[in-house]
Every structure is written in structure tokens, then in C-alpha cells.
Design a protein around this nucleic acid. Sequence first.
DNA 1: GACGATCATTCAAAATATAGAACATCGTTC
DNA 2: GAACGATGTTCTATATTTTGAATGATCGTC
Lengths: 270, 270
Amino acid sequence: MADPVTLPTPSPVRKVARAVKDSKAPAITRAAAILRLLGRSERPLGVQAIAKELGLVPSTCLYVLRALAEEELVSFDPDTKRYALEAGVLTLARHWLRRDPFNDLAQPHLDRLAARFGLTMLGVQAVGLDHMIVVAMAQSGSGFQLSTQVGSRFPALISATGRCIAAFGDYPVAELKARFDQLRWDDPPAFGDWMEQLRQTREQGFAVDEGQYIAGATVVSAPVWKGAGRPVHALVAIGIGAALGRELGALQAALVEAAGTLSGQLGGGA
Amino acid sequence: MADPVTLPTPSPVRKVARAVKDSKAPAITRAAAILRLLGRSERPLGVQAIAKELGLVPSTCLYVLRALAEEELVSFDPDTKRYALEAGVLTLARHWLRRDPFNDLAQPHLDRLAARFGLTMLGVQAVGLDHMIVVAMAQSGSGFQLSTQVGSRFPALISATGRCIAAFGDYPVAELKARFDQLRWDDPPAFGDWMEQLRQTREQGFAVDEGQYIAGATVVSAPVWKGAGRPVHALVAIGIGAALGRELGALQAALVEAAGTLSGQLGGGA
DNA sequence: GACGATCATTCAAAATATAGAACATCGTTC
DNA sequence: GAACGATGTTCTATATTTTGAATGATCGTC
């Protein structure tokens, strides 16, 4: 999986401007935009550069930065007058990880499956229909592998995991179609075919993506339930298509079993 | 090292109230306080509970929460009307980790030393004189160990690492004294002794804490420079005192060497 | 070493987010 | 099953933040 950070960046200026207008707490919208910009940036940025990039007023931008620095979410170098992300964001992330039992419980399963099948395993969480986020990862460590990192974001409906989210989410078809049309695949399926695959996913209890999202890569995904309603998490296996070969069947079975066990532990299930 | 999250919680109400007053962007101060509160909380919280805990007006609190939810930093369950941290904070953390070369470069050293000496190794970053944050960790995996997690925060001047920060930071003595007086140790050193230890730390290039911060635990810490000025990072070794025994000398040498190598790689050094 | 340009910062007017009360909604108890 | 209590949400006047120009600092260039 390629890192989606470098995907099309639809000029933040307009987005931020609109979001700020609609929000009843625009300072927060601005702050979030600044944090994301600083995260995206390779190097620390000055007030002016940030303001220009996001279409903010420099003075306002300065006040926001100062507040963020005060909260230790942003670092400030008095010599260069540059701002960057600060380690405080790590502390928040740690708390988030600790708060959700999925993260701890999934790890052993991921480690085991990654070692057994020699591929990359992910624990993924869906955030509505917008994104899914990688929250846990395990790699077998042997040979070449597709790699990603904890915290990476992907469009919610992409690849095998996207099929799980769509299949078990009970969303209106119109909404699925709208989102579906914005996805980028290496080898895009037709919407009709994709809907048929959703039916199949519901039937089987897992989804497979053979080279459609990323050419040459096979992705298998099984949903994990935390309670009633739609599944929020999924276990994902990513392997080089050729290397998987006839182990695919065994992998699917093992993945579904692990997902089932996890759902049980989390108090989910059908 | 005990997790400092459960340390004295000096009633957030007053702190938040003061911070909000002083800030030119109070919404951000409030937002940060809410994020931290949600991180601290075991379970999702409602608007009212959050507002009361932080001394905020419920309606304002609601607007802030909505803005944070819009930014995917906070999750909202429409059924229970409860808010919690959302996975978006992970994405920020990932960007932060990627942005600082220390995190990637330190890991191999930590792994190596943890395995060789059979103890817990940390990569630590100082945030001013307020805190230090664990940004990387390695454990040998054998036997009992003192444990902490990436993202954990500690008072900046505590233990061996605190001595490094103080010794090489060139801070006014008055400021050191003020901070020093607020530290909690299992076996607190006198300020005079501590100042003498700083001198020694400068001389040796590393600091040792033998059971003062945590009874029975030996902590060794060596500073890592990224550029001129004060060191921002440190490599830390934590072991059960008895288990370390006469390996202590070898550990100190190895730690200082690793820290020196890292400083070189980061373009720092004396 | 002085000039010019760029950037960070400050300041007072104006737009607007906030506070507090009123309203709506939910779950509980009698 | 109805009334109560508590919680979430909306509404509007006002105190505040935001704005955009003016000031001050800093860097690179001639």
C-alpha cells in the first residue's frame, strides 16, 4: 500500500475556508488544519507560509500557533521563528490506543498471522464513510513486503476492507455510489460488479481484493464487531499476489477465525 | 517507571480557567483540555460531564466538541451522545514520528542495547523544562522489567534524564530550583547534592540515578545533540538495580557511545 | 555597512463566538 | 403511565476574538 499522504491534495485553502465559515468554533478548525499542514510538511514552517498555504490571516494564524505551542502540540524555535509538530500529539495518541481494547487484543492475532503466512497484517478502524485508519500492524520480517504505518489513512471504501465496510454497514446505495466514484484504484471495478462483490462479501464473511487497488497485491479483509450495528474494525492481510498462491484459502479461513475470536472478546458478534 | 498519568491531578478547573483567560485563542485551549480529559477518561463522556470537569459552559463545550468531531479528533456516538478520542490523533502522531529523524535513528540503538543488557531502553525528548516524553522504546523481553509506553510524559528534571537536561541546558539556577522543588522522588536528593551531580554529569557525559526516582531501579541517561545549544533528546536505560550489578560500567560506556553516534548522525555533537 | 525586502508582531475597529437562560428530549421514578 | 429530573440543544445580547493595516525586527544583497 502506498502512503496516501502524497495523494491528490485538493488545495487546502478552499476547504479550510469553508470549514471555518460553517463551524461555530472556527479557531479549532483552523488549529486542526495547521496541525495537519505541519504534519504534512517536511520542515518547520513560519507564520507567513502557514497562513498563505491555508488562506488564513497571518495575525490570526499567529495567535492559533501560540495557543497550540502553549498546549505543547506545536513546537516553536525562537531562533528561526519556525513552527513544527510537537511531541504532545504522541501523548494523545497513546491515550487513544490505550482506550480501545481492539488495539491490544488485535496485536497477538496480527503477529501470529503475519509470521505464519509471511505477509503484512493490519488492524484497521473505520471512521464513518470517510476514512479508515491503520491502528495496528505486524510484519513477518522476511523478504519483500508491502508496508504502511500505524496512523495511515485510506479512503473508507477502498480495496478489500472497503468492501467489508460497505457490505456490513447498511448504507444507502446512493451514498455508496457517490463515495465509490471518488476512489482511485489501479484497476477500478465497475460499480455493478462491486455491488455484486458486496453481496458475496456478506455471504462469505470476508472480502478479497486481487490486484484491483494495487496491481500485484492481494488484500484479504475480515470485519470485527465490537457491539451490535456496523463493524468498526477489520483485520487485513496484504501480500504479494504471486507469493500467496494456494495458501490463499488457508489465509482466508485463519483471518475469519481470528476476526471471529476478536469479535467475541470485544463483546460483538452477529 | 510508574505511569505519570495517575499522578496528582491538580483540579483541571482552575488551570483551564486561567489558561483560557490568558490565551488569545481560548477555543484552542479549551479544545486541548477536552482532548486531554477524554484521553484520561476510561469511558466516553457526555457534554455535561466534560463541561463540569473542566469548568466550561456546556453550550460552548458542545460547540468545541462538534468542531473536534468534524476534524475527526473526537468521536461522537449519536445513540449515547457520548464523546471520546478518535483515531485522527494517531495520524497526527504518525506524522510527528516521521518528521523527526531521531525516532527512526534511535530505534536500532535501543533494540541493540536492550537485547545486550536485558533491560528497557527509552528514547526521550525534552519539551522545555516542563516535561520529557518517551518517543521510542525497546525491551529485551526476558524476565521482569520496568515498563512504560511511547507517549508517556514525565517531569523534565526527574531521574537520570532530568540531570542531563539540567546539566547541559544552561538554565538559571533559580529556575532549576523552582522546578526541582516540585519533583516527587522515592528518595529525594538534596538540592545541593543534586547540583553537584549535575557538575559530575557534565564531566562524565552521562547521568545515573540509583534508586532515587524509583526505589530499586537504576536509570542511566546520556544526552543526544541535534545541533548546537541544549540537547533535546536522550537515550535512557532502565534496569532493576540488583540485576545490573557490575555490568553497569559496560552499560554506561555503550550508552554514551550510542548517544555520540546518534548525535553525529543528527548533525549535533559538541 | 547600509539599504531594501520579507517576515513576525502589534494595535484598534468590527465582525462574531461565547455565555446563560430557555427549550427540547431522554431516561427514571412514583 | 405521567411527572420529575437530568441532559443535550437552541437562541440572542454582549463581551471577545478576528481582522487588516501599521510597526518593528531580521535577513539577504549591493
